[in-house]
Design a protein around this nucleic acid. Structure first.
Length: 1091
RNA sequence: GGGCGGUUAGCUCAGUUGGUUAGAGCGUCACGCUUACACCGUGAAUGUCGGGGGUUCGAGUCCCUCACCGCCCACCA
C-alpha cells in the first residue's frame, strides 16, 4: 500500500482523527505510568506528577475546566517527551452539598419528593446513580480534549481508597486532639431543615422594622437609669438574650470613630462627602446628648449591674464589650449568642451562656435556662413560627410598656439560595479541626502550611497569590468539618451519653456552677474541699472510662469524654480506625450511635495528592511521585483547597504535596462576567471541539492565557441552519429560542423546556475566538501537506555543514531560538508566550519564508535532496514543539511524515513511531547566529519593498518586474544567491547588484539602510500613485527629522542621556535625512513625468 | 469596609531593566485562484496608551491622585 500525500484532504479532518488517535495512544499505554521496580535504577529523568483538580460530579465540564486541563496536559506532555516518568492522576469530586442539592432539586421537581420521603439510604443511592452518569460524561469530555491522564488510576473522592485515607486522617487528628466537638452557628434553612453553606446564602433587601425595647435595670442605684434601651430587627430573638452590652470606653470610641471619618472625609470624592459629614455630625451630636449616660452604663456594667429580661424573666448581665458601638442606635446592644454571628463572638469572648430558642423547623422551642430548667414564662410562644412569635413578643412588650419607637427600615436579609426562605443563624454541634497553634506555642496546622510557602518549599505562581494564601491561613480559624448532609464521608465517631454516678449531696449542676464561679473569681486559689473532690471524681471517672475502652479495643479507637454540667451526663465520643467493623458493631450494641453528619467535601479533597497515590498504604507510587511536581488550578480555591492540601500533606506525609502551584486566569464572557450555566453564557467545550477541533480549543485557550489578565471571551450562538454566528447579549442569552438574524429560522437554546422549543434544532454557544487557532491548525496541516508532497522521493542522509545555505542557517538559527524560548515559556507557565512564539515562527517564518523558498530549491535537482532533508528536519522539530498544545494534529502529521521520511535530522536517526513519546527537542544553541539572521532580514526587507511597490503601482503578479539594487559588494554577495527567491516570491528579476547603478528611466524606488532598490516600471507606471506615495513619505520624514533635531539640539538631552542613546538618535537622524533627500529627488523626477 | 487585578486600534490582547514617531490577531479597505493552504496570499489604513498631576534629558512603562470595571474576603443590632 503506497502513501500518496496528494490525496490528503486540504483540511485537517479532526472529527475523524481525534478518536482514532486517542484510541491509539490508549492502546499504546502511553498515559499509564509505573514507578521503577524496587531496587532498580530509575531509567527515566525522574518522577513528574500532577494531580487533577477533581471536577465536581455536579454537572458537565465548562470552558474553565477545558482551560485548566489543557494547561495541565501541556505540562504533562512536554515532561513526558522530556523523558520524565510522568503521571497525571485523574478523578472526580463528590462535591457534597452541591451534588446532593442538584439531586434533591430534581427529586422535588420531577417526583415532588423530599429527601425525608426517600430516606437516607435511598437518597444516597440516587446520588450514586447521578454520579455514575456525570462522571462518565466528565471523563469522556476530558478524553475528547486529549487529556493524557493515567485512567487506570482514576479516583473518586468518595471511593474506597479515598474513604480509607479520610478515616485514617480523621482518626489521626482526633487522637492528636486536633479534632474537637463544639458549637457553631450555621446558616439554617428552616424550610429544607438543613444547614447551607455560606455561598448558598444570598442577601435580599426587604422592608422591615427597627424596634426599640426597654429592659429594666435590677436595683438601680441613685443617678442610674432604670431601663436600658436596645434596638433590634428581629424581636423574637430577645427570648434568647443572655446579656446587654455597652462600650467600655464610649468617649474614646466616639473619638476614634470621628477621627476615622475625618480621615475618610479628607480622601473622599464629592459624592461621598455629604454622607460622611452627616455621620460626623451625628457623632458630635451624640457626644453632648448621650455620652454621660453611656459612661454611666459602662460604670454600671463594671459594677456588675444586672438587667431583667422581660417576658423570659431572666436575669442577664450588663457587660462591657467593644462590639457595642456608641455611635449607633441607643449605644447598647442586646446579645443573643445562639442566633447571631456577632453576638456569638461576643458570647465566646465574655463566656456568656448560649440559649437556643428554635426548633429545626423554625418554630419556637421549649427554652432551657443555663441551669437546665425549662423556662415556664416563655411556654406561650412554644410552637409559634418566627413571624407569629415576633408579633407576639412585640405585643407583649407593648403591653408591659417596654416598647419604644418602631422605625421603618430596609433590612439586608440572608436568604437560602435553595429554598428562597430566610436563613436563621442556628447553633449546632459541629466537629472542628484545630488550626491554631498549640497551647505551648508549637506551630499548629495553619502555621505549618504558612511556613511551607514563606520558606519557599511551595512556590506559588504568580507570586501575588501567595498573599491570599497567607492572609487567609494567618487568621488560623478552626475549620468546621461537619455538614448536615447525607452525601459524603460519614463522620467516624460513635457517641454515647452516660449518667454521672456519684453520691452527690447537691445537684451536679450546682456543683459545676460553683466550680466555674469560684475559678473565675479566685483564679489562683485552690478549690474548697467539696468542690475539689467533685472535680477529681469527674476526672477519675473519665480516666477510668478511657482505660476501659483502651483495654477493650487497644489503639483501634480513640476516645474523648466530656462532662456536660447542664444535664449531669458524660458524653463519650469514640473515634474508630478504618476497617474495624467488629468494633463498630460492638459499640452500637453497647448503646453508641454513629454521628449522622458527613464531612466537608474539602476534607476529602484536601488529601487528594496523597490519597490518590494509595496513602495510608505505603505504595511504591506514593513513594515515587509524592510530593507531586505542580498543581494547576484557579484562584478561587486557593484557600479552600490548596491551603488544606498543604496542611494535610504536612500532617499525614510530613512533606508538602507539591513543589509549585500555578494559578491560571478565569474565563469571562464578553461583558467581563464569569461564565456560568445559570447565566446562559457558558460554552460547552464539546461544542467548540465539534466546530473547531480539540487542537484549536487547546491552542486557543493557551494563547489567551496571559499572566495578569482574565480571559475575556465574547460568545455567540451558532445558528444550526446556516451556521451564522449571532452575538450573545444580556437580552438574548436567557431566551429559550432565538431567531437567526441571517436566515430568519429559529433554533433552541439551553433554556428550551416547552415541547415547541425543544423540537427546534439546538444552537450551540461558541466563541469565534477559536477561529484563529483553527486557522492555524489548518495552516500547519497544509504546510505539512506541501512538505509531504515534496518528500515522496526523500532519501535519508547527513546534511553537511558546507552545504547549508543562508536560508538554511537562518532557519536553523531561528529554530534554536524558538525551541529555547517556547520550552522556557511552557516550563514557566507562560502559555500565551509559548503559543505566540510557535505561532509566529510556524506561520511567518517557516511557512511564509522557508517553504516559499523551498519551492524553488525543490525544483532544482542539484539542491533537492538537501532541501528535503532540512525541510523534513524543521517540520519534525516544529511538530514536537507544538505537540503539547496541539496533540492530535501533530501526531497525525508525524505518522504521515514517518511514512516518507522515517529517518530524519541533520544527522538522521529513526523517528519514534508515536510523537507523544518522541524526545523533546534540545535547542541547538551553536546554531544561533545573529549575523545570519540580520542578513536574512535584509533579504526580507528588500522583498517587502518590492512587493510594496508592486502593490502601490497595482501591477498584477503575473507581470514580471525587473529591479536593480545599489549596495555594497558585501550585501550584493548576500543578496545575489537569493535571486531565485525574488523571482519565485515576488515575480521580480534582478538586473544588477552594484555600488553605483544608473536608475531606469521610469522607476519606483525604495531605500533601506545600506541599499537602494530601483524597480523598472516600464509601461506599468502610475505616476500619480508614485507621487502621492512620495509626498506622504516626505511629510512623514520631515516631521520625524524635526522631532529628532529638536531632541538633539536640547542641551540637557545631549549631556545627560547615555552616549549610546545619543548616538543612535544621531544615526537615526542622518538616515532619515538621506531618505528625505532621496524622496525629494524622486519627486522632482516624477513631477517632470506627470502631465 | 479590607485586599488583589485591570483600563493601550472598532473587538480581543502583547508591550522586558524608562530610550527611535507604540505592536499582534480578528475586523475594515485594495489587489490576487502564483507548485500546500480562500480556514489562503500580497499590500494599506487605523491610537490624546482611562483623566489629572509629578519625577526625568526622556514616561504606555516609575510615583501621587481621581474615575470606571472585575475578583476575593469581611460585614452594619
Amino acid at each position: 500500500m503506497t502513501f500518496s500525500p496528494e490525496s490528503l484532504p486540504n483540511r485537517f479532518d479532526f472529527a475523524e482523527a481525534q478518536p482514532r488517535i486517542y484510541q491509539q495512544w490508549e492502546a499504546g499505554k502511553f498515559f499509564h505510568a509505573e514507578p521503577p521496580p524496587a531496587g532498580q535504577k530509575d531509567p527515566s529523568r525522574g518522577p513528574f506528577a500532577i494531580v487533577i483538580p477533581p471536577p465536581n460530579v455536579t454537572g458537565a465540564l465548562h470552558l474553565g475546566h477545558a482551560l485548566n486541563n489543557t494547561l495541565q496536559d501541556a505540562q504533562i506532555r512536554m515532561r513526558r517527551m522530556q523523558g520524565y516518568n510522568t503521571l497525571w492522576m485523574p478523578g472526580t469530586d463528590h462535591a457534597g452539598i452541591a451534588t446532593q442539592a442538584v439531586v434533591e432539586r430534581r427529586l422535588r421537581e420531577e417526583e415532588n419528593l423530599t429527601r425525608h420521603d426517600l430516606g437516607r439510604e435511598k437518597l444516597v443511592a440516587r446520588i450514586w446513580e447521578w454520579k455514575e452518569q456525570y462522571e462518565a460524561r466528565i471523563l469522556g469530555q476530558l478524553k475528547q480534549m486529549g487529556a493524557s491522564c493515567d485512567w487506570e488510576r482514576t479516583r473518586f473522592t468518595l471511593d474506597e481508597t479515598c474513604a480509607g485515607a479520610v478515616r485514617q486522617t480523621f482518626f489521626d487528628l482526633f487522637q492528636k486532639g486536633l479534632i474537637y466537638r463544639g458549637k457553631r452557628l450555621v446558616n439554617w434553612d428552616t424550610f429544607l431543615q438543613t444547614a447551607v453553606s455560606d455561598d448558598e446564602v444570598f442577601q435580599d433587601t426587604v422592608k422591615g422594622h427597627f424596634w426599640h425595647f426597654r429592659y429594666p435595670v435590677i436595683d438601680p442605684q441613685p443617678g442610674e437609669p432604670t431601663v436600658v434601651t436596645i434596638a433590634t430587627t428581629r424581636p423574637e430573638t430577645m427570648l434568647g438574650d443572655t446579656a446587654v452590652a455597652c462600650h467600655p470606653h464610649p468617649a474614646k470610641a466616639l473619638n476614634t470613630a470621628e477621627a476615622e471619618l475625618l480621615e475618610r472625609l479628607a480622601k473622599a470624592g464629592t459624592k461621598e462627602k455629604d454622607g460622611i459629614q452627616a455621620q460626623i455630625d451625628n457623632i458630635r451630636e451624640r457626644r453632648s446628648s448621650m455620652l454621660p449616660q453611656l459612661e454611666t452604663l459602662a460604670k454600671m456594667a463594671r459594677d456588675g449591674r444586672k438587667l431583667m429580661l422581660p417576658l423570659a424573666n431572666r436575669e442577664i448581665p450588663l457587660i462591657c464589650d467593644e462590639w457595642a458601638k456608641p455611635e449607633m442606635g441607643s449605644g447598647c446592644v442586646k446579645i443573643t449568642p445562639a442566633h447571631d454571628p456577632n453576638d456569638y463572638m461576643v458570647g465566646q469572648r465574655q463566656q456568656l451562656p448560649m440559649i437556643n430558642i428554635l426548633n429545626t423547623n423554625g418554630t419556637i422551642t421549649a427554652i432551657r435556662e443555663p441551669s437546665g430548667r425549662t423556662n415556664e414564662f416563655t411556654e406561650k410562644y412554644q410552637g409559634l413560627p418566627i413571624k407569629k412569635a415576633r408579633a407576639a413578643v412585640v405585643a407583649d412588650l407593648d403591653e408591659l410598656g417596654l416598647l419604644g419607637d418602631v422605625e421603618d427600615r430596609e433590612i439586608e436579609l440572608p436568604m437560602s439560595d435553595r429554598s428562597k426562605t430566610p436563613i436563621e443563624p442556628f447553633l449546632a454541634d459541629q466537629w472542628f479541626v484545630r488550626m491554631r497553634d498549640a497551647d505551648n506555642g508549637a506551630a499548629g496546622l495553619a502555621q505549618q502550611a504558612m511556613d511551607a510557602v514563606t520558606d519557599g518549599r511551595v512556590k506559588i505562581v504568580p507570586e501575588r497569590y501567595a498573599k491570599s494564601y497567607l492572609d487567609w491561613l494567618g487568621e488560623k480559624r478552626d475549620w468546621p468539618v461537619s455538614r448536615q448532609l447525607w452525601w459524603g464521608h460519614q463522620i467516624p465517631v460513635w457517641t454515647c451519653m452516660r449518667e454521672m454516678e456519684l453520691p452527690a449531696r447537691r445537684s451536679v449542676t450546682d456543683l459545676c456552677r460553683d466550680i466555674e464561679a469560684f475559678e473565675r473569681e479566685h483564679p489562683d486559689s485552690d478549690l474548697p474541699t467539696e468542690l475539689e473532690e467533685f472535680k477529681q471524681l469527674c476526672i477519675d471517672t473519665q480516666n477510668r472510662r478511657i482505660k476501659q475502652l483502651r483495654e477493650a479495643y487497644g489503639d483501634k479507637v480513640s476516645a474523648q469524654i466530656r462532662f456536660e454540667p447542664s444535664s449531669g451526663n458524660f458524653i463519650e465520643f469514640v473515634c474508630v480506625q478504618p476497617n474495624q467493623d467488629q468494633i463498630e458493631k460492638e459499640l452500637e450494641e453497647a448503646g453508641f450511635e454513629r454521628d449522622a453528619d458527613v464531612l466537608d467535601t474539602w476534607f476529602s479533597s484536601a488529601l487528594w495528592p496523597h490519597s490518590t497515590l494509595g496513602w495510608p498504604e505505603k505504595t511504591p507510587a506514593l513513594a515515587y511521585w509524592y510530593p507531586t511536581s505542580t498543581l494547576i488550578t484557579s484562584r478561587d480555591i486557593i484557600t479552600l483547597w490548596v491551603a488544606r492540601m498543604v496542611l494535610t500533606g504536612l500532617n499525614n506525609m510530613q512533606e508538602i504535596p507539591f513543589h509549585e502551584v500555578y494559578i491560571h486566569p478565569k474565563i469571562l464572557d464578553g461583558y467581563g462576567e464569569t461564565m456560568s450555566k445559570s447565566k446562559g453564557n457558558g460554552v460547552d467545550p464539546l461544542d467548540v471541539i465539534e466546530k473547531f477541533g480539540a487542537d484549536a480549543l487547546r491552542f486557543g485557550l493557551a494563547a489567551l492565557c496571559t499572566e495578569t489578565q482574565d480571559v475575556r471571551m465574547p460568545v455567540q450562538f451558532e445558528c444550526p441552519h446556516c451556521h451564522a454566528l449571532i452575538d450573545q447579549t444580556k437580552q438574548n442569552r436567557e431566551l429559550p429560542r432565538i431567531k437567526c438574524s441571517k436566515c430568519s429560522q429559529e433554533f433552541s437554546t439551553q433554556w428550551a423546556r416547552k415541547e415547541e422549543d425543544t423540537a427546534l434544532p439546538r444552537g450551540p454557544v461558541v466563541s469565534e475566538r477559536f477561529e484563529v487557532a483553527r486557522n492555524f491548525s489548518n495552516k500547519l496541516w497544509n504546510a505539512a501537506r506541501f512538505a509531504l508532497i515534496n518528500l515522496q522521493d526523500y532519501s535519508a542522509g547527513p546534511v553537511n555543514e558546507q552545504d547549508l545555505t543562508v536560508e538554511d542557517r537562518w532557519l536553523l538559527s531561528r529554530l534554536a531560538t524558538v525551541t529555547k524560548e517556547s520550552t522556557a515559556a511552557l516550563q514557566e507557565y507562560r502559555y500565551a508566550d509559548a503559543a505566540k512564539c510557535l505561532y509566529d515562527f510556524a506561520w511567518d517564518e517557516f511557512c511564509s519564508f522557508y517553504i516559499e523558498i523551498a519551492k524553488a530549491r525543490l525544483q532544482n535537482p542539484a539542491q533537492q535532496a538537501h532541501a528535503q532533508r532540512v525541510l523534513a528536519n524543521a517540520l519534525d522539530v516544529l511538530l514536537r514543539l507544538l505537540h503539547p498544545l496541539m496533540p492530535f494534529l501533530t501526531e497525525e502529521i508525524w505518522h504521515n511524515l514517518n511514512k516518507l521520511a522515517p529517518e530524519r535530522g541533520l544527522n538522521p536517526v529513526e523517528a519514534s513511531e508515536f510523537l507523544i513519546v518522541a524526545p523533546w527537542p534540545e535547542p541547538d544553541l551553536a546554531r544561533q547566529d545573529s549575523q545570519i539572521e540580520q542578513q536574512f532580514s535584509i533579504f526580507q526587507q528588500a522583498l517587502a519593498a518590492i512587493r510594496e511597490i508592486r502593490s502601490r503601482q497595482n501591477i498584477a503578479s503575473k507581470n514580471q518586474l525587473e529591479f536593480s539594487v545599489q549596495c555594497t559588494p558585501a550585501i550584493a554577495n548576500l543578496l545575489a544567491p537569493m535571486a531565485p527567491y525574488f523571482q519565485s516570491m515576488a515575480n521580480a528579476r534582478a538586473i544588477a547588484w552594484r555600488e553605483k547603478i544608473e536608475p531606469p528611466a521610469t522607476n519606483a524606488k525604495a531605500s533601506l539602510p545600506g541599499l537602494e532598490i530601483y524597480v523598472d516600471l516600464k509601461d506599468f507606471i502610475d505616476v500619480a500613485a508614485e507621487i502621492s506615495k512620495n509626498e506622504k513619505e516626505e511629510q512623514r520624514l520631515a516631521a520625524f527629522i524635526k522631532s529628532k533635531e529638536s531632541k538633539l539640539s536640547n542641551e540637557s538631552f545631549v549631556s545627560r542621556a547615555p552616549a549610546e542613546v545619543v548616538k543612535t538618535e544621531r544615526e537615526g537622524l542622518a538616515h532619515a535625512q538621506q531618505q528625505l533627500e532621496s524622496v525629494r529627488r524622486s519627486l522632482v523626477q516624477l513631477r517632470k513625468m506627470s502631465p
